[in-house]
């Protein structure tokens, strides 16, 4: 069904107008991060008189950002990997064998989307496991926090993977392990990447959990380093925006790489849940 080109152009223009409401606030950050403190005192869209790249240098030194960047990277990526691995396996079995028990297990995981996390009791559990204040401890917590939504995503996606493949593989003598890891898992790429990115994001952007579960300053991630830095530079909007740009960049990078998948993954995953 063809539309009139004029109408299409109008629609395109209108959508861009809407997109402006997203881009406006975001460009505000970038513009103001390049101003001097006095220029940025009243946050406006006016362009800076002179680009203050020095803000970025200062933020790097003042916030010891490199160290916390690697902490964040470690916590976010390992927890996302664990979460994806265990949930994809679980979801596969839950989809393929929908008996009464498995349906209950699925609902049990679904509870996690709704239930409130309790930090003090979480600390107590971690203490019992001797994982309090360690990277493995917080990584496992982050991985766990991602499980409910990831189960939801994988469950929907795997439902759309035809069972003929399974049958063929079983006839070829594959066990569950080879069936899943060699045959099915490669097909889950879009949702795996989506789940990985969402989990990664969750851990990357979470600033409250580490505050309670990590008692070590040198293990804190970027968001926490930044928030502490706010404390000192609370009235320098240019520095605040500089730091925001620095935290967002890695996430943005990841998003641009994975966006081809993220949307199709979200789509097919969430649809059949």
């Amino acid at each position: 069904m063809r539309q009139k080109p004029l109408l299409l152009i109008m629609k395109e223009a209108m959508t861009w107008l809407l997109a402006l409401s997203i881009l406006g606030p975001l460009s505000l950050i970038v513009v103001n991060s390049l101003k001097t403190a006095t220029e940025a005192n009243t946050v406006t869209m006016n362009l800076p008189l002179k680009l203050q790249w020095v803000n970025y240098m200062e933020a790097f030194e003042g916030g010891s950002l490199l160290h916390s960047f690697f902490n964040s990277l470690l916590m976010s990526s390992v927890s996302a990997a664990i979460s994806i691995l265990v949930t994809s396996m679980a979801a596969f079995v839950l989809v393929r064998n929908r008996d009464r028990w498995n349906k209950m297990i699925y609902n049990y995981f679904f509870l996690g989307l709704v239930a409130p996390l309790n930090y003090v009791t979480t600390i107590k559990v971690l203490q019992a496991l001797h994982l309090q204040n360690t990277f493995p401890g917080i990584i496992l917590v982050f991985a766990t926090l991602g499980i409910p939504f990831a189960v939801f995503l994988f469950y929907g996606f795997i439902s759309s993977v035809p069972t003929e493949l399974d049958e063929a593989a079983i006839i070829d003598g594959c066990g569950l392990g080879r069936l899943f890891f060699n045959v099915v898992f490669p097909l889950l790429m879009p949702v795996t990447i989506t789940g990985f990115i969402l989990n990664f994001l969750g851990a990357w952007n979470d600033f409250v959990t580490p505050l309670y579960l990590l008692n070590k300053q040198d293990k804190l991630g970027m968001i926490n380093a930044i928030y502490n830095y706010f404390g000192v530079h609370f009235n320098e909007w240019n520095m605040i925006f500089t730091i925001i740009v620095l935290t967002v960049l890695p996430v943005l990078f990841l998003y641009l790489i994975g966006q081809k998948y993220i949307i199709s993954g979200m789509v097919s995953g969430s649809l059949k849940g």
Partner: peptide, 21 residues
């Protein structure tokens, strides 16, 4: 489709999420 595959997620989720809840 053995339920063993569900065990890691189930255990992790039960210990670190449901138990604190």
């Amino acid at each position: 489709y053995s339920r063993l595959f569900v065990v890691p997620a189930f255990v992790l989720y039960t210990i670190l999420f449901i138990l604190p809840v």
